[in-house]
Simulated scan of single mutants.
Amino acid sequence: MIEIEDLSKNYGKKTALKNLTLTIEPGQIFGFLGHNGAGKSTTLKSLVSIIEPTSGKIVVDGLELKANRQAIKEKITYVPDTPDIFLQLTAMEYWDLLAAAYNLSDISERRLKLVTLFGMEERVDETLSSFSHGMRQKAILIGALLSDPDIWILDEPMQGLDPQAAYDLKQMMKKHAQKGKTVIFSTHNLDTAQQLCDQLAILKQGELIYNGSVQNLLNQHENESLEEIYLGIAGRIDDQEMVDDIEGESHV
Rank of each mutant, 00 (worst) to 15 (best):
Ser129Trp: 09
Ala91Asp: 01
Ser46Ala: 13
Thr127Gln: 14
Val115Tyr: 05
Lys57Cys: 11
Thr116Arg: 08
Glu64Arg: 11
Arg111His: 01
Tyr102Gly: 00
Ile24Glu: 08
Glu109Trp: 02
Tyr102Asn: 03
Ala100Thr: 11
Phe118Arg: 01
Lys45Pro: 05
Lys66Trp: 11
Met120His: 04
Ala67Lys: 15
Asp96Gln: 14
Phe32Cys: 13
Gly119Asn: 10
Leu20Gly: 12
Glu52Ala: 10
Ile58Gly: 04
Met92Tyr: 13
Thr21Gln: 11
Ser132Asn: 06
Tyr94Phe: 15
Arg111Gln: 12
Phe30Ser: 01
Ile29Asn: 09
Asn19Leu: 05
Leu114Ser: 05
Leu87Met: 14
Leu33Asn: 11
Leu97Pro: 06
Phe118Leu: 09
Glu64Asn: 10
Ser46Ile: 08
Lys18Gly: 11
Gly31Thr: 14
Lys75Phe: 02
Ile85Thr: 03
Leu87Arg: 08
Pro80Cys: 06
Val115Ala: 07
Ala100Met: 09
Tyr78Glu: 01
Leu47Glu: 05
Leu98Pro: 04
Asp96Pro: 02
Lys66Leu: 09
Gly37Glu: 09
Ala99Arg: 06
Asn19Tyr: 01
Val60Leu: 06
Leu128Tyr: 00
Pro53Thr: 12
Ser46Val: 09
Pro80His: 05
Thr127Ile: 03
Thr43Gln: 04
Leu117Glu: 12
Lys45Asp: 07
Ser41Gly: 12
Thr54Gln: 09
Leu128Phe: 02
Leu87Phe: 10
Leu33Val: 14
Gly119Tyr: 02
Arg123Phe: 09
Val60Asn: 02
Asp84Trp: 10
Ala38Tyr: 06
Gly39Asp: 08
Pro53Tyr: 09
Lys66Ala: 13
Asp61Ala: 04
Arg110Cys: 03
Phe86Asp: 04
Gly39Ile: 04
Lys18Ala: 15
Ala67Arg: 15
Asp61Leu: 00
Asn19Ala: 12
Asn36Ala: 10
Glu74Trp: 02
Trp95Pro: 04
Gly56Trp: 07
Thr77Phe: 00
Thr77Pro: 00
Ser41Glu: 09
Ile51Met: 06
